[in-house]
Design a protein around this nucleic acid. Structure first.
Lengths: 192, 192
DNA sequence: CTCAAATGAGATATAATAATCTCAATTGAG
DNA sequence: CTCAATTGAGATTATTATATCTCATTTGAG
């Protein structure tokens, strides 16, 4: 085994990130020593892969964003009606909560450049979908698309948290979120 | 001046909390030394008022919740239609973002008993309003009231953050949030 | 099998911050 | 004005976690 064998190194990094993500989901304040132990490796080895805690955190957040991106790509936003695509996207994203939702807020990595580079095109995809829906008359055109995208983000967090707390059923979460987002909380009568 | 003069001690505590909240809003990682300096008092004095950092943080979060509670009480949820009351509440809460929205997520004080005691009755008030709206036919009865309350929380954060980032206008935020929450993001056509 | 590369356990060094302590200076009630 | 209570500046100690280092052991490519 040599360091030049990038695929092996990458595999180990992935295993390490998986373990770290798992532990941090339970205990967001876990120390590097705890993470190393949980991952079954030595502290020194952890540092060989990630020089600092921040490096590790950034890598974790990058991966979380990439998981989200993959889910969005796989939901084929361009296919069918905007509302159908929107629904597919929520259904794909909903199950990812456990892996990503703690990682993406809790930390102080909001405006890290390496993360912004991944997040920006992601937001673009979503904004694009929303604009398509507005153009087709499916989504309200009186709301700014960027606002809707941000609103969607937070609504996702709300649903993830509700599932995590056990206050809504896992299987029901996507449907519930979609219907709440699309239809709002008022009846027709009240908003007419 | 003696320690038995509770009102004076309370006044100083309030000043200290104001300063601490102000600084932490700008720099959430500020050390106790920085907080003391910003408040214009010595570190020792700060410790005389709050024995530990956690004590201070809990006090800050308590106060933030109390500020929110006051705003909700002043919006008279029982007066008029549920939608009107709901709108008044959002309009009262929106301007508080700067003071409270960092304090209530960022930290690790989620399930502190002293905070839960303040938060629980608050949630009750909101859930009560939502149920009133559902009973009167103004709000959708097919959505669980607790879910709507939580959804509302996160939507508020979304709007607060959007204002903070400058991506929506301060003056417009309450109206935008209310219309998005009540009406949803889809057109009538799409949800019919 | 061989050996260079990689690893793990743990010691050690650094760093940041919280918490405590000391004491001279200030404050304000009476 | 007087004096006990309070305060502030800063030294000191305690705590915690990160980061580095050492070296014996393990691993796996060839």
């Amino acid at each position: 085994m040599t360091l030049r064998d990038l695929s092996l190194v990458e595999t180990r990094k992935i295993d390490l990130l998986n373990a770290a993500g798992e532990l941090l989901a339970q205990k967001p304040t876990a120390s590097l020593a705890e993470i190393a132990e949980y991952a079954g490796i030595g502290k020194a080895t952890l540092h060989r892969y990630f020089a600092s805690r921040e490096d590790l955190m950034v890598a974790l957040a990058q991966r979380a964003l990439m998981v989200i991106r993959d889910a969005i790509v796989r939901s084929e936003l361009e296919r069918g009606s905007a509302v159908d695509a929107f629904t597919r996207m929520i259904e794909m994203l909903m199950p990812l909560g456990d892996k990503v939702f703690l990682l993406l807020n809790d930390n102080g990595l909001q405006d890290h450049p390496e993360l912004a580079d991944i997040e920006a095109p992601l937001t673009e995809l979503v904004v694009g979908l929303i604009q398509r829906g507005q153009a087709s008359g499916e989504l309200r055109a009186d709301l700014n698309a960027e606002w809707i995208a941000r609103y969607l983000d937070y609504a996702l967090f709300a649903a993830w948290k509700a599932v995590h707390d056990g206050s809504i059923a896992r299987n029901d979460a996507a449907r519930l979120l979609v219907t709440t987002l699309l239809g709002g909380i008022a009846t027709r009568r009240a908003t007419s």
